[in-house]
Amino acid sequence: MESRPPLPPFSLETARQKVRAAEDAWNSRDPFRVAQAYTEDTRWRNRSDFPRGRAQVQAFLQGKWQKEREYRLIKEIWAWHGNRIAVRFAYEWQDAQGQWWRSYGNENWEFDAQGYMAVRHASINDLAIDASERKFHWPLGRRPDDHPGLTELGL
Rank of each mutant, 00 (worst) to 15 (best):
Glu152His: 01
Trp80Arg: 12
Arg33Val: 13
Arg45Gln: 09
Gly82Val: 10
Leu150Lys: 07
Ala86Phe: 11
Ile129His: 00
Thr39Lys: 00
Ser28Ala: 12
Arg72Lys: 14
Leu153Tyr: 02
Pro139Arg: 00
Ser28Gly: 11
Leu73Thr: 11
Asn83Val: 03
Arg43Met: 12
Asn108Leu: 14
Asn27Cys: 06
Asp49Trp: 00
Pro31Asn: 03
Leu61Gln: 06
Asp41Ile: 04
Ala55Trp: 05
Gln56Asp: 13
Leu12Arg: 15
Lys18Trp: 04
Tyr104Ser: 12
Asp126Lys: 06
Val57Thr: 14
Arg120His: 09
Tyr116Ile: 02
Gln114Ser: 13
Leu61Asp: 07
Lys75Gly: 07
Ala15Tyr: 04
Arg33Ala: 15
Ser48Arg: 13
Asp146His: 05
Phe60Cys: 00
Leu150Ala: 03
Arg134Phe: 01
Phe50Arg: 07
Arg43Ile: 15
Ser132Cys: 10
Asp130Asn: 12
Arg43His: 13
Glu133Trp: 00
Trp80Tyr: 15
Phe10Ser: 02
His137Lys: 13
Gly53Ile: 05
Gln56Phe: 06
Gly141Ala: 07
Trp44His: 14
Trp65Phe: 09
Ile85Trp: 06
Glu40Ile: 08
Arg16Cys: 01
Arg16Gly: 00
Leu73Gln: 12
Arg134Pro: 07
Ile85Val: 15
Trp44Ala: 10
Leu140Thr: 11
Pro5Phe: 13
Asp24Met: 10
Trp65Glu: 07
Asp30Met: 05
Gly98His: 05
Arg69Leu: 14
Ala59Thr: 15
Leu12Tyr: 09
Thr14Asp: 02
Ser48Asp: 15
Ser3Ala: 13
Gln56Ser: 11
Arg45Val: 05
Phe50Leu: 07
Glu92Leu: 02
Arg142Gln: 12
Val87Tyr: 07
Trp93Tyr: 14
Gly141His: 08
Pro5Asp: 02
Gly63Leu: 01
Asn108His: 14
Gly149Thr: 09
His81Arg: 15
Val87Asn: 12
Val57His: 10
Glu107Asn: 12
Gly82Trp: 13
Ala25Gly: 04
Met1Cys: 08
Met1Phe: 14
Phe89Tyr: 10
Asn27Arg: 10
Val57Phe: 11
Glu152Leu: 01
Arg47Pro: 06
Asn108Asp: 15
Arg20Leu: 01
Phe89Ser: 10
Val119Gly: 03
Lys64Pro: 05
Leu140Arg: 11
Trp100Gln: 00
Asp95Glu: 06
Gly149Tyr: 08
Glu23Gly: 07
Leu7Pro: 04
Gly82Met: 09
Ser132Asp: 13
Thr42Ile: 10
Glu107Ile: 12
Lys18Asp: 06
Leu61Thr: 04
Glu107Pro: 06
Tyr91Glu: 03
Val19Ile: 11
Arg88Cys: 06
Ser103Pro: 02
Arg72Ser: 03
Asp112Ser: 02
Gly63Ile: 00
Pro9Ala: 07
Asp30Lys: 11
Glu76Tyr: 06
Tyr116Ala: 02
Arg52Asn: 11
Lys135His: 10
Tyr91Val: 04
Pro148Met: 08
Asn106Ala: 13
Val119Trp: 00
His121Met: 11
Pro31Tyr: 01
Phe60Gly: 01
Trp101Arg: 01
Gly141Glu: 06
Gln36Ile: 04
Asn83Thr: 01
Glu110Met: 05
Asp126Asn: 08
Lys75Trp: 09
Tyr91Lys: 04
